[in-house]
Amino acid sequence: MFYPNSPQTSPQLTQIPYGQQYAMMQRQIQQPYHPFATTEPQARLYPYHYQGPIQQEQGGFITQQSTAASPQYVQMRVTPVDQSIMSGYPNQTANGSSSSSFNYNIHPQQQQQQQQQQQQLRHHAMPVGSVPLQDDRYRKQLIVNYLAPDVTSTDLHELFSRFGELDGARIIYDKQTNMSKGYGFVYFCHAEDAKEAVERMSGYEFHGKWLKVGYSTNPLNIVPSNSSPYVHAGSRGAAG
């Protein structure tokens, strides 16, 4: 039997160049792979992502010199942007860049009308829970959420009447099932009393439920100042 490094198959040491006398086997001759043993700084910083320098080929596509990437890492192929796409944008300079302001050559009167329309939209648009300043009635009506099913309009009136005089209180019921929808409205005579009720009743436990109280901004629920107070009856038909 002959071994790869046996004296019968191995040459004389004098015939082997210096430095390879003890590297006779194939696994010894093959050098191990060192990912950080390279002179390129990109490979030292990113050993798993770097795959060699990027070269520009004919046709405008950018390719990489090395083989496919590892399945664990996804390499994105980048193509140059066609400058003709950006030619339609206004205020574009000769080098292809555009300024931040756009001039669509709008007539001054049209621009003024658009600004007025935007101001009107901001004036009428009102986020949930906010209180408008032009109508004091919005500051007097509250919406009470997360009410228990057994709470009546009379219970709601008695709960909030300790903060001040009320114009009314009612629970909203479903017309088909005649069941409470879980929320109601309270109408105060003074805005200061309503503000105190919002601050003190939010998070209050009532009939096993934690109440959420806020201003009601729905104009359909506003009680006119010259109208008669609501009837605080315990029956659902009268309260709904």
Rank of each mutant, 00 (worst) to 15 (best):
Y187H: 01
G164I: 00
H34L: 11
P41S: 04
G88E: 06
S202Q: 13
R139Q: 03
I54R: 03
Q118M: 11
L211V: 03
P90W: 15
Q112N: 10
T67Y: 14
L142R: 01
P132N: 06
F2R: 05
A125S: 12
I54L: 08
Q15E: 08
G88A: 12
Q31G: 13
H123L: 12
P53Y: 14
Q58I: 15
E57V: 14
T38P: 12
I171H: 03
L220V: 13
Y48P: 05
R170M: 00
I222R: 09
S6M: 15
P47K: 02
G164K: 00
L211Y: 01
S202E: 02
R137W: 01
M25C: 10
Q26N: 14
N178P: 03
A239E: 04
S227K: 03
Q117Y: 08
V151E: 03
Y89P: 03
Q42I: 12
P41L: 09
F160G: 02
K181N: 04
H124Y: 04
V213S: 00
Q12C: 07
H49D: 08
I16K: 04
V74P: 05
Q83D: 03
E196Y: 04
I85D: 11
G237I: 03
M24A: 07
G19H: 11
P71T: 12
A238D: 12
P7D: 07
F102G: 08
Y46P: 03
E165Q: 12
M25I: 15
P71L: 13
Y173V: 07
S98F: 14
Q120I: 14
L121W: 08
G240R: 11
Y48E: 03
Q21G: 07
E57N: 09
R162G: 08
S99G: 11
S227G: 11
D193Y: 04
Q8N: 06
Q118T: 06
A194C: 03
Q65W: 13
Y48H: 09
G234T: 03
Q21M: 12
Q20L: 14
N226Q: 05
L121A: 03
Y89H: 07
S97L: 12
S10Y: 14
R122K: 10
T154F: 06
Y33V: 07
A191D: 01
H232E: 06
I106V: 07
G60A: 09
M201A: 03
Y89T: 09
L156H: 07
N91P: 11
Y73N: 06
Y46R: 06
Y183T: 00
P90K: 12
A68S: 08
Q111Y: 13
Q55I: 14
P149Q: 08
M76Q: 07
G203A: 02
F188H: 01
E192G: 03
V78W: 15
G88W: 15
K175P: 04
Q75V: 15
Y215F: 04
L13I: 07
A239Y: 02
I29M: 11
V144K: 00
H190I: 04
Q116C: 12
L142E: 01
T217A: 01
M76V: 13
L166Q: 05
D167Y: 11
S161E: 05
Q12K: 02
Q15S: 11
S225P: 05
I29L: 11
Q64G: 12
M76C: 10
T217F: 02
E158M: 14
G168V: 14
P90L: 13
A148S: 08
M76D: 07
K209T: 00
P47E: 11
T177R: 10
V74D: 03
Q30M: 02
T67N: 06
G237W: 02
P17W: 09
Q112I: 13
G237H: 10
P17M: 15
I172P: 00
Q12G: 15
I171Q: 02
R200Q: 11
M179C: 10
I85L: 10
Y22W: 15
H123V: 09
Y50F: 10
Q8H: 12
A233Q: 09
